[in-house]
């Protein structure tokens, strides 16, 4: 088929926009991560000087090296924050599943005329600012917060628990923020389920609990897998939650990148941190895509 001008225009405009504002910036990050830090503006060397012709291009490439990446392996701050990001994301995903599954299950067993309303109630928090929703937890978790007031009043504890600025607060923040992402795919899987399967299982002598584990749970597995990825992937690079609820010793890579850039002004290292974070993310993203294609 020949390209007519209308088709060309339709393809070229979004394509060009994405190339200029997504692809090129990403290549710049890659390039700067291979450059040396310099005390200048911009604070990195070398810069590509096209006016110097071929020699300039060759000089540019010879100036690139993996020094920043070596630096990442040598300073254990970066190792620790990658590992701790993975750990925090994994633990939070697990707890999100633990809380999200029963809610999704209960939704799928609700009367059909209630379900759209329940769906809306689950989606609604997602539309309001994550920043504000995370902020709401400061008032609950701080040492003079609502939770400690209740616990002290009930006499459960003698002195306020310190939860804010600990990893526990970060877990709570992630579970809270990403819960809808877990509930919706599981609900979608459970809602499609044919209830007569459960009746058959019970007729054949399964107890209700056995029927759940042998029929319902396996059938909802695609939803569980999708939900886990949808929580795990974004929480790995999370910045807002650890910086508001976590303490200075709660390491997450998004926060490290931010500080490297804004506080230390070390652009090459910040770029190298970003490149490694992307490499780590590629694995779960590819697995997620495979899972989606399998169930499509």
């Amino acid at each position: 088929m020949r390209m007519n001008p209308r088709r060309l225009f339709l393809i070229a405009v979004p394509y060009g926009w994405l190339l200029a504002l997504f692809m090129v910036p990403f290549l710049i990050v890659l390039k700067i991560s291979l450059s040396d830090t310099a005390i200048a503006i911009p604070p990195y060397m070398p810069t590509l000087d096209l006016s110097a012709g071929w020699a300039g291009i060759r000089e540019f490439f010879s100036g690139l090296d993996f020094e920043n990446f070596t630096w990442l392996t040598e300073d254990d701050l970066y190792w620790k924050s990658y590992v701790s990001s993975l750990w925090i994301a994994a633990v939070s995903t697990f707890f999100t599943l633990l809380i999200g599954y029963p809610v999704a299950y209960a939704m799928s067993r609700a009367k059909p005329e209630w379900r759209p309303t329940l769906m809306m109630l689950i989606i609604l928090p997602f539309w309001s600012s994550a920043l504000i929703r995370v902020y709401a937890w400061i008032g609950i978790l701080s040492s003079e917060g609502y939770l400690n007031q209740i616990l002290l009043w009930l006499g459960v504890v003698d002195e306020p628990l310190s939860i804010l600025n600990t990893p526990l607060a970060v877990y709570i923040g992630i579970v809270y923020t990403y819960l809808p992402f877990m509930i919706l795919p599981i609900y979608a899987a459970l809602e499609k389920m044919d209830e007569s399967l459960l009746e058959a299982a019970e007729d054949l002598g399964c107890t209700r609990i056995a029927a759940f584990w042998r029929v319902t749970f396996p059938l909802s597995r695609p939803g569980i897998v999708a939900g886990c990825f949808l929580v795990f992937i974004p929480s790995l690079g999370e910045f807002v939650i650890p910086s508001i609820l976590g303490g200075s010793h709660t390491l997450m890579i998004g926060k490290v990148l931010w500080e490297e850039f804004f506080s230390n002004r070390d652009w090459p290292v910040a770029s190298a941190v970003a490149v490694v974070l992307l490499l780590i993310l590629v694995i779960p993203i590819v697995l997620f895509q495979r899972n989606e294609e399998k169930n499509a």
Binding site: L18, F22, M23, V24, P25, V29, G237, E238, F239, A274
Partner: peptide, 22 residues
């Protein structure tokens, strides 16, 4: 390029765009 920004951590999107603008 359509799907990548959906999963890209915001810190990386922000950083890369800033570096472009500079």
């Amino acid at each position: 390029m359509i799907y990548a920004p959906l999963v890209m951590p915001e810190v990386i999107t922000g950083l890369s765009l800033l570096l472009l603008f500079i």
